[in-house]
Every structure is written in C-alpha cells, then in structure tokens.
C-alpha cells in the first residue's frame, strides 16, 4: 500500500500503468476515499501544477481538474467566463471540503447531484483525459457517466486533466442555483445550472441542466428548445419552470424529498437560474 504524490503528469501516468506493484488509482482531494474500497496504490495528482491552472487560450477556458472548489470560487477568470462553475464551487459542502475537494473529483465520483458537475454540464464542458504520456482524448461531458455513482472516467487507467469550456462572450451568461435543507454541510435537494446566449433581447442558445434526475446531471432538451427565441420576460421564466418540471424525470427519497416536491423545486430553480443567466448575459456586452 503506497500513497504517491505525483510530481508530473507523465510520472503519474507511468505510475498508473506500472501494475507490477498492485492495483493503482488516481485521487485528487481524496475526500471520499473513506467511502470506497482501497486499491494497493493511490496516485495523488492534486499537486500537478498544470492541473491546477485556470487559463484562457485559443478561445477556450481551460480549468484544471485539480483546481479546488475554493480556488475556483476565488478565480476572477472563472467568475467572468463561466460564472455557473464559480457559483457552484462557492456553495458546495463546507469551507473545509471546498479547500481540498477538486472539480475533477466532483465529476469523477459521479454523484448524481454534484454541484460543480451540474455547472460543468450546463457550460458544455469537455473533459481532457490522458491514458498514457502524451496521449489524450477529449470527451463531451455527457459521456462521463456510466450510472449512479459510477463514472466512465476509469481512475485506475486514466487521468482527468482539464475541462475545456467555451467562455462567456458578449450576450452570453451562465448561473447556478442549489436548494438545500441547511445552509452548509448539505447535499442539495435539487440544483440547476444554465447557460444562455442572447440575440436582440431573445434567447438564441439555451443550455439547462438539473439534478438529481437520474445518474448524471440531466440536460432538459425539450425545455431548451421550447425557450429558443423567447424574450426575457417573467412569462418566459414561468414557461421554463412549467416545462422543466414536466420534462424532468426524478426520484424521491424518504431522506430528502418526495418526487412531487423535487419536480416542483427543479422547475422553480430552472426558471430562476435561466433568469439569472440571462441577466448576466445582458450585462455582458
């Protein structure tokens, strides 16, 4: 049993492939480690400098998978270009968890209502994964989930390195909202993120993602389509609320809330988050 602090991405990948000393798995914040079965080796990628960067290059916002929630929440660049992600990172868990938990871990753990993951899904993020030194591939966000708490990111084989996000340009904005039973230390009863593009005061592009609704953050495509071309009136947001509530497939739980309430809540959050994203888009000239 060995805990390896990776010094370079290539080194981490090499260590991952070296199965001679037993099964290995990649971790970053490692906050959920106590819930999981432990392999023989853990490869900690949280200190790789390139995975902690937030940069804007070639028209894309590149956010490292090892960026912690508090780092994301403190990043002016993320607030400016992908506000939903900064917002999600600000509200999650507790200060202690946000100091150590990472965006990559939030996605790779594949919890159904992970805040940052919901924001990333709405932002249309793509994931860059390495499976050996120098070899990477880019996956759309939707392709990262295999089932409840089960990720397609195989932490025993590959390293999630970056998220690529189309930055908010003029007339574009995003937002994230969560609803919890308590001010901190709570999983959300529901959360929602949206990204919109405006043209002449109307919705030209809409991305709306809610959770928990199935194993992965759930994109509400019917509602998105319905809203295209709508103006930014209260009527539009009511329509969004109604449509989202009807479209979303939810489960209830004795612990958190009933199906009916979650359906209502998701509708309300959808209307509010779209309105907030649109306001930001309007300001973003």
């Amino acid at each position: 049993m060995k805990y390896i602090i990776a010094k370079s991405l290539d080194g981490a990948l090499a260590a991952l492939q070296d199965t001679g000393t037993g099964r290995a798995r990649v971790v970053a914040g490692a906050t959920d480690l106590f819930l999981q079965e432990q392999p023989d080796r853990l490869i900690d990628i949280s200190r790789l400098p390139e995975l902690q960067e937030v940069t804007l290059e070639k028209g894309l916002l590149r956010v490292g998978a090892a960026v912690t929630h508090n780092a994301a929440s403190a990043s002016g660049l993320i607030w400016e270009k992908a506000a939903a992600l900064a917002e999600a990172s600000t509200l999650l868990g507790s200060p202690q968890i946000r100091n150590i938990g990472t965006l990559g871990g939030n996605v790779a753990n594949a919890a159904p209502a992970a805040d940052a993951a919901v924001a990333l899904a709405a932002l249309g993020a793509e994931a860059v994964l390495f499976d050996s030194p120098g070899r990477f591939y880019v996956k759309p966000f939707a392709g990262l989930y295999a089932g409840y708490n089960c990720s397609r990111v195989d932490s025993c084989r590959e390293i999630l390195a970056w998220f690529l996000i189309r930055p908010a340009g003029p007339g574009q904005g995003s937002a994230f909202l969560r609803f919890t039973a308590r001010g901190a230390l709570s999983l959300p009863l529901a959360n929602a993120a949206a990204r919109v593009t405006l043209e002449k005061g109307r919705l030209k592009e809409v991305s709306l993602v809610v959770a928990p609704a199935g194993p992965a953050p759930s994109r509400l495509k019917k509602t998105e389509a319905l809203l295209l071309g709508s103006n930014l009136s209260g009527k539009t947001w009511s329509m969004a609320e109604e449509s989202a509530s009807a479209e979303v497939a939810v489960r209830g739980s004795a612990l958190r809330c009933s199906v009916e309430y979650r359906r209502r809540l998701i509708g309300i959050l959808a209307g509010r988050v779209l309105s907030l994203a649109a306001q930001r888009a309007q300001r973003n000239r």
Partner: peptide, 23 residues
C-alpha cells in the same frame, strides 16, 4: 429522525440536520 421500515434513514450529521452557523 426519518425511518424507513424501522431503519434510521438519516444516521449522519448530513442527514440529521442540526443548524450550522448559516442557519
């Protein structure tokens, strides 16, 4: 307490929600 068939469904501090400083 929340029970499901006699089982405590919220046996943690995240499920049994005592107030935080923000509440």
């Amino acid at each position: 307490y929340i029970f499901e068939e006699g089982r405590v469904a919220n046996p943690t501090f995240s499920g049994y929600r005592i107030p935080t400083a923000l509440d």
